[in-house]
């Protein structure tokens, strides 16, 4: 059984007065295995938050099925074993961190003694020790994010759904969060998190799903996605004129008086390197370049009819919308 399974999820929004329909999610299919870290990757406005809100029952899907541990997600009870961190969380500013965690715990049916120990442990775990009795209005963004994680863990969930958990964290915070997520996987939890920052993913996810314009473009093991993607080589050389080089290899770029040639196979590399040396050029470096997640991401985006990112209204009117409507509304 999957920890989370989404089949054919569709969601549209209507603008209030024009009654115009925007299809935001166009059939999301993804599945998260138990005990893995799943990275939900996509650019701004792709529909990550919308998908997550459908899972959490904050939005009602138009079509499709969402199963958590094999049970329909729309059931209230399905959320008993889920921990959720919303995007840009905001919590009651009149409460202290400790009060807030007790309040969060009260929304689950948990034994009181268990809650007390867990709240104390969580405050320590997310690095808020010493701040637990401070009112949240005095919390910084990063501290709120940490508290958000603590409240997501208050029911000791099996599945964690984190919407942009790395946003607002400094490098130390990022590292702490990475360590925390890895230790949660160690403890057998499933972690599903969204991000548009590829670095966050590359360092720890087991599988990724790439969402673009309301649909999943690729999903798979990170190692597979990367190894399947073609590697290429970069040959850097100098002491050769552009004219001579163009006879060996017509396509190259010039940077700081050196030439960079991109080649697809190692056979090509041998040939080109030999010819350059033969022409008394100097080989500065030969770099095998592995395709990164970033490259996969950009190659998927390039497959899209390219849209100027500046036409998006404030970063929210993503590719899901026809470009022209950004200005109208």
């Amino acid at each position: 059984m999957k920890a989370l399974e989404i089949k054919g999820l569709k969601k549209s929004f209507r603008s209030n007065f024009l009654l115009r329909k925007y299809n935001i999610l166009k059939g999301i299919d993804l599945d998260v295995e138990k005990g893995e870290i799943y990275g939900f990757l996509g650019p701004n406005g792709a529909g990550k938050t919308t998908t997550i809100k459908c899972v959490m029952g904050l939005l009602a899907p138009d079509a499709g099925e969402i199963l958590v541990d094999g049970q329909p997600a729309r059931r209230t009870a399905a959320r008993q074993r889920i921990g959720f961190l919303p995007e840009n969380p905001y919590f009651y500013d009149y409460l202290t961190a400790r009060e807030f965690l007790f309040f969060s715990a009260s929304l689950f049916n948990l034994p009181a003694t268990e809650v007390k120990d867990r709240v104390a442990a969580l405050i320590h775990r997310v690095g808020l020790s010493g701040r637990e009795d401070l009112k949240l209005r005095k919390f910084s963004k990063g501290m709120i994010q940490r508290l958000g994680l603590a409240q997501a863990l208050v029911n000791d969930p099996d599945l964690l759904i984190l919407d942009e958990p790395f946003s607002g964290l400094d490098p130390v915070g990022r590292k702490d969060l990475r360590t925390l997520i890895l230790s949660l996987r160690e403890a057998g939890k499933t972690i599903f998190f969204s991000s548009h920052i590829l670095q966050d993913m590359e360092l720890m996810v087991d599988r990724v799903g790439i969402i673009l314009d309301g649909a999943i473009r690729r999903q798979g093991k990170l190692s597979e996605l990367i190894s399947r993607s073609t590697q290429y080589y970069e040959v850097v050389c100098d002491h050769i004129s552009a004219k001579e080089l163009s006879r060996i290899q017509p396509v190259f770029v010039r940077r700081d008086g050196q030439f960079i040639i991109t080649l697809a196979s190692d056979a090509d590399v041998n040939l080109v390197v030999e010819s350059i040396i033969h022409n008394s050029g100097r080989i500065v470096a030969v770099n095998p370049v592995k395709m990164t997640l970033e490259d996969i991401f950009f190659s998927e985006m390039a497959g899209e009819a390219f849209r100027d990112p500046t036409s998006r209204s404030g970063g929210t009117g993503g590719p899901g919308r026809p470009a022209a409507t950004g200005e109208k509304t």
Partner: peptide
């Protein structure tokens, strides 16, 4: 408005 309700309704609360 401040989305604190998200936090409640994403828990097992109807």
């Amino acid at each position: 408005e401040k989305k604190t309700a998200y936090n409640i309704l994403s828990k097992p609360v109807s």
